[in-house]
């Protein structure tokens, strides 16, 4: 029965979620450049423009990691937190493909 646990929201699924806007899921991305309240962010080679307007009490800089939801960074996270999240997501890419086929 334990095999069923091998599913987690994969990076691909989550990034697809960005496109299809699952309304409660935010994903970790890394900031590559900042211009005012706009940031260029990357995750798994996919780039997105992200607003930093909701992070004014918690300033960020290029290289930092943020949780992104509907184009807005809602929370800064540590590199360890982001990478451990992605690590789990990565492991599960293969398992995810099987689920996606349903």
């Amino acid at each position: 029965m334990d095999h069923v646990l091998k599913w987690v929201p994969s990076s691909r699924r989550l990034l697809k979620g960005v496109k299809r806007n699952l309304m409660c899921l935010a994903i970790p991305m890394q900031i590559t450049a900042i211009d005012g309240f706009n940031a260029r962010c990357v995750a798994k080679g996919i780039e997105r423009d992200v607003s930093l307007f909701m992070l004014q009490d918690d300033p960020v800089e290029a290289g930092d990691y943020v949780m992104v939801h509907v184009g807005y960074a809602i929370q800064k996270v540590t590199p360890q937190e982001a990478s451990s999240a992605w690590e789990i997501y990565d492991e599960m890419l293969a398992a995810d493909a099987a689920v996606a086929a349903i």
Partner: peptide
């Protein structure tokens, strides 16, 4: 009370486990 939670629960098969 979150669609994202329900999705993970269902896709991971937690009910059966």
């Amino acid at each position: 009370v979150c669609g994202g939670h329900e999705r993970s629960i269902t896709m991971a098969g937690l009910r059966g486990a």
